[in-house]
Design a protein around this nucleic acid. Structure first.
Lengths: 209, 209
DNA sequence: TTTTTTCTACGTGTTTTTACGGGTGTTTTT
DNA sequence: AAAAACACCCGTAAAAACACGTAGAAAAAA
């Protein structure tokens, strides 16, 4: 059996190194490289041998895990990504599945499960454990009903989440306050909430923000 | 030189195991146990040999790192805690210092720094690197100026952060909406912000919430 | 090229927030 | 023990934000 080549992507060096130390105890695994964000990853893939498996943290600076997944699927079809996240969140999981991740692991999983997942994915399978699959299905209904926010809406949401007032946002975007209010109000309807604080809370849990 | 006995506390098993694998490569370190939350830690300390050093994640369920630090200082004076957090946040660091942590490390530090910190603390020193110390000092002024929120204010803030409206909160607490508004407005002044969203943002970064 | 969606904006009536002020009881300082 | 500071409560009036409907032009999708 050939060695399985891996790359580990996570923004916390300690986690990265720890995980590598852990993986390296297994003689059939070979960690080719570790990177701290999506950008570095893409550069590494350009230059080095392609790995069989990519262990990918979702929350990274520069280019997050979701972006990475999209890119990988386009440019490096042979690389199979397994997401590693600390969020036990149906929406995250669903998005990973959608973007073509071959597996999803929680950071509070154990060594055995990681190894299992790697083996399974390497052999052509997928690894989403039951608990996670259920969460994903639960969140589906909700996510679908939300569709997406439009560009302008997302832009305004961004400002709202930083605490800017309607007036401030209007002047930044060179539109009338009414327009900003309309966009906000449309978002309230889309997400079925009643005020800005709830909007931001919900947008956050749906990772729209 | 005796071996340095350690306990690792973190809610993510993979991080815990990874860090342990990493520490165990060093012959003078000995990981006595790993635990996944503050409660389990306190139980372990009750029953087992006391460690020299405790590597302590701050964000854990059941009993978080800050609570742990308080307890440690009361009951187990010989155990020296080093906080390991992913938050590069002056306020966190300051609170750790206040509660008697002997060091503060970021999760994106490297192996060398961890080992350094452990050695230094074991030998009677403290380990707060320069960058962090500066952040702490920066945040000091701000934190002090904030004083504390009163009970009622904190209560109302809690509701606000969950997206309840003024009216809803008023009826929950059996006071007029005007009162709720007054409290909110006082908080806005205290934290020097201009609306509820900013209030919640700031309260969060100051960990008042 | 139709059709649909998105972005922009307005009007009107309602609700919420803000600014300013006042009152009572409790705790802290002097 | 008196004075000062704080915490909590509420009112009015004006300003801002909001709800809800409408609607045209531009952009995207079919």
């Amino acid at each position: 059996m050939n060695k399985i080549n891996l790359i580990v992507a996570d923004d916390h060096q300690l986690f990265r190194d720890g995980l590598t130390a852990l993986l390296n105890k297994h003689p059939f695994l070979n960690v080719l490289a570790t990177v701290e964000d999506g950008l570095e990853l893409m550069n590494t893939l350009k230059k080095e041998t392609l790995p069989d498996i990519l262990l990918l943290d979702l929350s990274m600076p520069n280019m997050n895990g979701f972006e990475v997944l999209k890119n990988i699927r386009k440019k490096y079809k042979t690389v199979k990504a397994i997401a590693i996240s600390m969020h036990d969140d149906g929406n995250y999981i669903a998005r990973c599945a959608e973007y073509g991740a071959f597996g999803y692991l929680l950071k509070n999983t154990d060594e055995t499960e990681v190894i299992d997942a790697i083996k399974q994915v390497y052999n052509g399978g997928k690894y989403y454990n039951q608990d996670l699959s259920r969460k994903m299905i639960d969140s589906m209904a909700e996510v679908k009903s939300v569709r997406k926010l439009t560009k302008k809406e997302a832009e305004i949401l961004e400002f709202l989440s930083k605490g800017f007032t309607t007036k401030e946002i209007a002047s930044k975007l060179y539109v009338s306050t009414r327009t900003v209010e309309t966009h906000r109000s449309n978002m309230l309807k889309k997400l079925e909430v009643k005020n800005t604080v709830e909007l931001i809370n919900k947008a956050t849990t749906l990772s729209l923000i």
